[in-house]
Design a protein around this nucleic acid. Sequence first.
DNA 1: TCTGGGGTCCTAGGACCC
DNA 2: TCTGGGGTCCTAGGACCC
Length: 417
Amino acid sequence: MGSNNFYVSCERVFQPTLSGKPVVVLSNNDGCVIARSEEAKAFGIPMGLPAFQLADLLQDQPIEVYSSNYTLYGDMSARVMMTMAQWTPDVEVYSIDEAFLKLSALPPEGLSVYGQTMRTTIQQWTGIPVSIGLGPTKTLAKLANRLAKRSAEAGGVVALTATSEVEAALAQTPIEHLWGIGPGYTRRLKAHAITTALQLRDANDRWIRQLLGVVGQRIVWELRGISCLPLERCPPPKHSLMMSRSFGRPITTLTEMREAVATYMTRAAEKLRRHHVAARVVTVFLTTNRFRDEPQYTKSATMPLPVATQDTAELIRYALQGIAQIFREGYRYKKAGVMVTELVPAHQIQAHLFDQHDRERSRRLMAAIDAINTQWGSGTVRYAAVGVQPRWRMRCVRRSPRYTTRWEEPAVVRCAP
DNA sequence: TCTGGGGTCCTAGGACCC
DNA sequence: TCTGGGGTCCTAGGACCC
């Protein structure tokens, strides 16, 4: 299952007048276009277009522009995923708008009809249009899904089951549209005159292994219908976790940089606790704006912690140490971030002998802070290091209301007289 | 004025060990 | 005239994904 322009669809569920109109959704910081309705694509708006170029491109076009509203999209995604879980417990949530389902119990002839039912139900229950691709491996299912999105007569569902259908689909698919084939692999393959998915499927094993490694080998086998990428029902525990943002305006002082890093570390620590993991290593980084013709500087600092932790105050201390090490005066910084790595399950934190921290007290304090912030809104209780009213905070001037997750921002239904 | 954020996996090469 | 062989671990960098 996959969705087309998922973010635009989410906006349209609560703003039905948007349907049929060109709509785009911008990335964090209102930086660039990350979702386009079909109408917007028809205007020639490319993915990743910087937002400030939209104005030039669309002088008089009536285009609807939205900042991204991840709270809303995340909640809508959960509804779609929950709907699918009723057909099979074997669901892998692959991304915010994609999932793999294992339907091995069904006879191949019945798959298309089944797919249609799923599609209609998801549309009715959540308002989100999706397309469904069926195939014997993940790679072929992804390809089927792509065809389902693009072909009008498919009705949103394509099953690649019969050998002849698979061959026809592979013959008409350029390699760069396959899942797992990016620009680098495309270049290597094209250098050897391999341009279609069918040619790739029929390539020699040892040769492919040499050219693209085991990763490429797996793709080839998947194209042959041999599954190499198993369904992962529960996501494996994370190894690392990152929190970074571009600034609404450049930062030039260490004071502001410290606030930004403390803010990001606070969010990262919240994520750690939500995932029940603790970090053994903290990395901070900062960077200037690579698009500007001015002095550039990018640097990171990595700090190992004596004991794995999920305590916000402790993590902020290390992050600030790191940023002090790498901050240099005289640059206009565009972005900074924190990364926590070597994550371990929170219940198996190995304290060492001379650990001066009262870990139990810290755990209770963090639980209390999280509870307050969940109930009263993020940032109700926070550390002084994050500052007040930062001038660098990111822009999002066109965000829609968080209809489904905030009592103060509900959807309003107007009835025609 | 202005160009996103967050991940995973694999490989090659170096250090080090016996 | 001649310099072992094999193993593990770590890191950096590159590839990919959405």
